[in-house]
Design a protein around this nucleic acid. Sequence first.
DNA 1: CCAAAAGTGTTGTGTTTACACCCATGG
DNA 2: CCATGGGTGTAAACACAACACTTTTGG
Lengths: 229, 229
Amino acid sequence: MLNSYSSEDKVLLSVDCIIFGFDNEGLKILLIKRDFEPERGKWSLMGGFLKKEESLNNAATRVLNHYTGLQNVYMEQLYAFSEVDRDPVDRTISVAYYALINIENHNTELIKNYDAEWFNISNMPKLIFDHDDMVAHAIRRLRYRTSTKPVGFELLPEKFTMRQLLELYEAILDKALDKRNFISKINSLDILVKLNEKDMLSSRKGSYLYMFDKEKYDAKSLNNFALNL
Amino acid sequence: MLNSYSSEDKVLLSVDCIIFGFDNEGLKILLIKRDFEPERGKWSLMGGFLKKEESLNNAATRVLNHYTGLQNVYMEQLYAFSEVDRDPVDRTISVAYYALINIENHNTELIKNYDAEWFNISNMPKLIFDHDDMVAHAIRRLRYRTSTKPVGFELLPEKFTMRQLLELYEAILDKALDKRNFISKINSLDILVKLNEKDMLSSRKGSYLYMFDKEKYDAKSLNNFALNL
DNA sequence: CCAAAAGTGTTGTGTTTACACCCATGG
DNA sequence: CCATGGGTGTAAACACAACACTTTTGG
């Protein structure tokens, strides 16, 4: 009789998503007002339970899509949170994921219906359960990941200015960066294309738009792009 | 009726441990010969199921202690593996942990009884299920962690020579390091104490023994010791 | 013509790498 | 006395950090 591990305990597994976005006000995360007990009305990450016939990655993707309407989003598994009393209702282990989205692309209708809201990471409400820990983890991981892989572009529109890119890195790393040094480091990586097109909204002179050149980046097959900021 | 999420699926959760050790032959991991079906007789990581009343960290610690007799071991959660068909017997999500132990300290009787064996990481058998992935993950994480936190010492005896430390880093990073540069980097961190005691086994001249000075390290409260090797 | 942001290089400092010889000792 | 590993410093190349002025143009 070997087709089950019959005497072992089974538990609930959930995923919780830390959804990052970026705009000219800084780095933000998307939170939802919980509409069921316990902790109804408190702010929470977006989550859901793992179904028996899906992987954790699938579950995280499903949850993200459900709340934002988005697909093909950069997501990464963070950590499994498993303190026995972390959820007062039932024993639940939660695997946290973070996602990087272009804040302009998601379905604003959808998030309004869910009572969701973007919060600046420096100005966030207290969250339920251990969700604050999850967010802290996510920010640490995002800092590491952005200095190691070109994932920052996921948070920007397809075409962006150097100023936007600079401000993105400043927001993620939470420190001021030198404009000239930053630009020459980025240029030395040789993974952007400069377009013959300017963004005229931010200044009279206008500033050039750039795009991330994924082909070029992949061709280099760096396993680590070591952006030492 | 709010004291359960009653309609959600429950699943089995297990932990699997990648146990690293180091000796003069290199970096090793401890594997066990599986003694039940399926895959009886194949090599496997040491694992066990999560019990309802313990956290994942507790479960990992319990499993490690069960197989090695060790306590107070450096362990870190790696990643949750959740492909639907990863375990043919039953739907099981497994959270991988890695541990760093001083290979001389564990209970050799115990591991003999369990049909366990140390394998050099460059010379490992194929493992069951997705355990090879877990090991690959663990090695990557160990590389990152050792260049960022002083965890390498967990793999060495309390007193060790510079040569041992050098060879440890060479084994972890899988590359040759320059002896003089390595020693001056380590010394510049100022976290070792040089003892008035030599190891006379490795050479006629004898080489000085060192200890990691945790107090000194903590006092500096570096959040990252940036050993750029 | 002026306010506001864009764009652009150089220099000093510190870090990293490459490299080779003498020392101490047990046998 | 010699074989073996232990221990030590310097110079060149490179990467990083600090720094300020000119350009453009809409209003």
